[in-house]
Nucleic acid binder design. Structure first.
Lengths: 222, 222
DNA sequence: AAATAATATTGATCTAAATCAATATTTCAT
DNA sequence: ATGAAATATTGATTTAGATCAATATTATTT
């Protein structure tokens, strides 16, 4: 029977039984083994029965960032719901066993889950993926890369909203940007000035004009 | 009518209409105004119609960390689902308007959402809260605070699993810990040695014995 | 059990970003 | 419009943590 902590409370007996039938129990995973890997199509969510795992994001340039350590009872693969592919690698830290919860059966269980709910799941999952990307940024990028990543990301999101992707009117202060990027305000200012000197952008207070997006892109890959 | 990007795709016309009835549209929020604040009971999820926001986590010691900037069409408050209270402050960066989506109506819409699904939502949301806590750690803590936070957190989670909260048998390498905490392996090692010197812990390779949990706690508040 | 590889510790030095400090610019309130 | 407050830039200096380097310890394989 499913262990109590495999899914949070809130289920009645019948639901537990039904859910239990969707699961493969005590699937053994050897130390060092990859449970799922970044980019792989979503097939299941996992709950750890025994043992422990690490989750890791790999960056194109080879850098990697540990995004979490998971212990027994905790779930892995939630970040895959958004794009229907895993956003990280999960690697066993010791010989472990997991419950494998088939995602489609879970999501369509008794047809109770509407498409609305499913889309809500995806929104939640996308937020997890986004946060993990920022963890990668905070954990392993240098100041210039962080600021470049910030500008590129904002440019993309402005573009998605039919706003100019090159003339960014920032609504946030340098202080906010610094706090977001894990940098001090002076460093943000200096990096922006340096980018301006090098002709990548033009800075007029909160208006930033991107003049060489490729140079910014080459500074990161976010 | 609800704007297309207020919720991700995947809804049919009827669902959009139903959802639309659960929402307060174009609620105006003045620049600098707090839409919701950390600790407040969850009442609604918000989607930005126009304008932009920042989300911020406040630490007990007064430090704060920007965890994101949200633009039109993006959602805020997802992190509140887990504990039914908002995990961050949301502050308007300019005069903005939001769609307010009543959480209870959303979650109970036509009784389609089972308690199972609701509990799944909470799991997803808890992951968001956890990631944001790590963002705070990576963005604003010094090496000693990070390592202390790591040990305290692990101790708590071991305790939750009926394992010793003081004798931690680490399954991860120093390299993993370093990557997780945004530190180099040498720094992790040095901080552990320093803690040992000061009598907070005893280190024997991957066995770490916590001898002064209060001192570790006072180094952070995670 | 010995050999090899992987991990971890410790020291010396360097450097990116923080801090301290002064001034400039923008924004807001009257 | 004017003054005050908030925000931003730039320079000089310091410092926490990175890097470089050597050795020690622990795991893994033969």
């Amino acid at each position: 029977m499913i262990k109590e902590r495999c899914l949070p409370a809130g289920l009645n007996e019948e639901e537990v039984v039904r859910l239990d039938q969707q699961m493969e129990h005590r699937l053994p995973i050897k130390k060092g083994q990859l449970l799922f890997s970044q980019g792989q199509a979503l097939s299941a969510i996992y709950a750890i029965s025994t043992g422990s795992f690490k989750t890791r994001i790999l960056h194109e340039d080879g850098r990697s960032q540990i995004t979490g350590f998971q212990l027994s009872g905790e779930m892995m693969g939630l970040d895959a719901i958004s794009e229907e592919r895993y956003a990280c690698d999960a690697i066993a830290l010791e010989d472990s066993t997991v419950c494998k919860i088939d995602y489609d059966s879970l999501a369509n269980l008794e047809s109770e889950i509407s498409r609305l709910q499913r889309s809500f799941n995806k929104t939640l999952s996308a937020e997890i993926v986004r946060d993990q990307t920022i963890m990668l940024l905070l954990g392993s990028m240098r100041a210039e890369e962080r600021v470049a990543a910030f500008l590129v990301n904002l440019s993309q999101r402005f573009h998605d909203r039919q706003q100019s992707a090159t003339e960014l009117v920032l609504k946030m202060t340098r202080e906010d940007i610094g706090s977001y990027l894990g940098l001090k305000i002076e460093t943000v200012s200096r990096v922006l000035s340096r980018f301006a000197e090098e002709g990548l952008i033009a800075v007029q207070g909160r208006l930033i004009v991107i003049t060489d997006i490729n140079a910014l892109l080459s500074l990161n890959s976010y």
